Amino acid sequence: MPIISLFVNACVAFTGFYLISKVFHSQLFFSSRSRGVLIGMLAGMLGLFLMFNGVEVNEDVRVDLRHLPLVLLAFYGARLPLFIATGFIASTRFLFGFTDQAVVAFIATWFVSLGMIWIHRRLSERLFFQSMLLNVWALFVISIAVLINLGWSMSYITLIATIWTIGLLVGLLSSVLTIDLEQAKRRAKDYKQSAERDPLTGLFNRRVWDRYTSELENENRSSNVLALDIDHFKRVNDTYGHANGDLVLQRFAELLLAETRLHDVVARVGGEEFVILMYDLTPEKVEKVAERIRKRIEDEVFVLKDFPPIHITASIGIAHGKSEPVQKMTEAADNALYQAKRSGRNQVILTNVSELSLVTN
């Protein structure tokens, strides 16, 4: 019976949804592209399985739930996997014969996917409504395709009623599963973010800083620890309020990220205290980088709320070394920072820890 076949299809699709979702959220891939190709192929094979186990209305017309893997991929906004799966599912329809009905099914499959992209783009944050609308859109297009192939009749009405009943039911169940997995993934991401990032500036916090710098003395490469402090920051808070002080800190952090490399470690470890870890720069080069940062901060106009814009300055201490303990590097950077402040602030002071070690020994 058609309803039994479609129900079996729905159960298989439901299981496939779960497996593909797990792969989608997996971190066991070298690149997002390789993961996308794999997901697209898995979804395509699931669609092919659903197609082979579909309902054969007559020798030319087949009805199944091959659209369900496409719904999942569209929900995640995974365009590369969606296009791969769509091409796979649409093309394999011709395995049942190169007929006018197969051509209609091929076009309908692509039409379903293109419409899904449009739906996801506009409803990406309304998870449940988006998921159900993706299913409704697919069922609507399928109904039109079957009408073209089968014509209007009582058998068409019965078949479409069955398809919509099973399709909406499995769509509801798959929506609940997919949304649950997506929300679990978002919660895990938020927990990781809160554990690793400073909530105000978005920079790494002290925990991550300690993790990145813990092995400095075991790494056979030159490293630089920069300690930065906003000059007279207490005066900013006292004069303009802590809310404006937070705006200054946020913009200060943005400038640090703009003036450093992607693989540099930038962290906030105190109120107005920031640190940067830079590898493989000579003392001359890191001093130029620090001077560029200092100048960028000095020239920046910091916009405040309910007050005129202000200018601030920063003092920077640098510790340069190779295979030196992190405590030694941090102390040297802090001492250089204090020296910069004692010397009038708004300047860069560098200490070569390796040379000091040679002199001491």
Rank of each mutant, 00 (worst) to 15 (best):
D190P: 10
Q183W: 11
W152T: 09
L173V: 14
I166A: 00
S153I: 00
S194D: 15
S222D: 03
Y156M: 04
V176G: 12
I157T: 10
K185S: 11
S223T: 08
A195V: 11
L203Q: 03
T165E: 12
L172E: 05
W152F: 15
Q193W: 10
D180A: 15
W164F: 06
A195N: 08
Q183I: 15
G202P: 03
Y212V: 07
R221S: 07
W164A: 04
K189D: 15
S155C: 13
L168W: 05
D198T: 02
T162P: 07
R207L: 08
L200R: 05
F204L: 06
P199Q: 09
L177F: 04
A161Y: 13
Y156L: 03
R206D: 12
W164H: 04
Q183M: 13
K192G: 12
E182N: 14
T162N: 13
T162R: 09
G202Q: 02
E215C: 08
S175D: 05
L159Q: 00
I166T: 05
G171E: 06
D210L: 09
K189A: 15
R187I: 12
D210N: 14
V208Y: 02
R206G: 06
L169Q: 08
I179Y: 01
R207N: 13
L200Y: 05
G151R: 02
G151H: 04
L159N: 00
I160F: 00
I163T: 04
N218C: 09
R197L: 04
K189T: 13
S214A: 14
L216R: 02
S153Q: 02
L177N: 05
E219L: 11
L172F: 09
G167N: 02
R207A: 07
I166Y: 00
W164I: 13
S222P: 09
K189Q: 11
A161E: 03
G151D: 01
K189F: 11
G171R: 03
Y156E: 01
S174A: 14
L181H: 15
L216I: 00
D190V: 14
F204M: 13
S175I: 05
R187T: 13
T158Y: 11
K185L: 13
V176S: 12
T165V: 08
S175K: 05
N149V: 07
R197I: 02
W152H: 10
E219T: 12
R206Y: 04
E182F: 14
N218L: 15
S155K: 13
Q183T: 12
R187F: 07
A184G: 06
S214F: 09
L216E: 00
K192H: 14
W209H: 04
T165L: 15
I163H: 00
S223N: 06
D198Q: 00
S222H: 14
L203P: 10
L173P: 09
E219D: 15
L181I: 07
V176C: 09
D190T: 15
T201Y: 00
S153G: 01
R186H: 15
I163E: 11
G202E: 03
S155Q: 09
I179M: 01
Q193F: 12
T178Y: 08
L168N: 11
E215T: 10
V170Y: 06
E182P: 09
W152I: 12
K189C: 07
W164S: 05
W209Y: 06
R197S: 08
E219Q: 13
A184W: 12
L150S: 03
S174I: 06
A195Q: 10
T201Q: 01
L200W: 01
L203T: 05
K189M: 08
